Amino acid sequence: MELRPIIISHADRLSACREKIEEAVYLIIQGEKLVGFSSTEIAMAIADVADDYILAASRKRVATH
Rank of each mutant, 00 (worst) to 15 (best):
1 M>Q: 08
1 M>P: 10
2 E>K: 10
2 E>N: 09
2 E>F: 07
3 L>R: 09
3 L>S: 15
4 R>Q: 12
4 R>S: 13
4 R>T: 12
6 I>A: 02
7 I>N: 04
8 I>G: 00
8 I>Q: 10
8 I>P: 02
8 I>C: 04
9 S>Y: 00
9 S>T: 11
9 S>C: 06
10 H>L: 09
10 H>P: 02
11 A>W: 03
11 A>C: 03
11 A>H: 05
11 A>Y: 00
11 A>I: 00
12 D>L: 04
13 R>A: 14
14 L>M: 14
14 L>G: 00
14 L>C: 09
14 L>H: 05
15 S>L: 07
17 C>Q: 15
17 C>I: 14
19 E>A: 14
20 K>R: 15
20 K>P: 01
20 K>Q: 12
22 E>R: 08
24 A>K: 11
24 A>P: 03
25 V>L: 08
25 V>P: 01
25 V>H: 02
28 I>H: 01
28 I>C: 06
29 I>H: 00
29 I>W: 01
29 I>L: 04
29 I>K: 06
30 Q>W: 07
30 Q>F: 04
30 Q>V: 00
30 Q>I: 02
31 G>M: 00
31 G>F: 01
31 G>Q: 03
32 E>N: 11
32 E>A: 10
33 K>D: 12
35 V>L: 06
35 V>P: 01
35 V>N: 02
35 V>H: 03
37 F>H: 06
37 F>C: 01
38 S>V: 00
38 S>Q: 01
38 S>E: 04
38 S>R: 03
39 S>T: 09
39 S>P: 04
39 S>C: 09
40 T>K: 13
40 T>V: 13
42 I>N: 02
42 I>Q: 01
42 I>M: 03
43 A>I: 03
43 A>D: 03
43 A>H: 12
43 A>Q: 08
44 M>Q: 15
45 A>Q: 11
45 A>I: 09
48 D>N: 15
48 D>L: 14
49 V>R: 09
49 V>K: 05
50 A>R: 06
50 A>Y: 04
51 D>F: 12
51 D>G: 03
52 D>L: 13
52 D>H: 11
52 D>N: 14
53 Y>D: 05
53 Y>R: 07
54 I>T: 10
54 I>Q: 05
55 L>H: 07
55 L>Y: 05
55 L>F: 05
56 A>K: 11
56 A>F: 05
56 A>V: 01
57 A>Q: 13
57 A>K: 08
58 S>Q: 12
58 S>R: 06
59 R>E: 08
59 R>G: 03
60 K>D: 12
60 K>Q: 13
60 K>W: 08
60 K>R: 11
61 R>I: 07
61 R>V: 10
62 V>F: 07
63 A>W: 02
64 T>V: 14
64 T>K: 15
65 H>G: 10
65 H>N: 07
65 H>A: 11
65 H>W: 06
65 H>L: 14
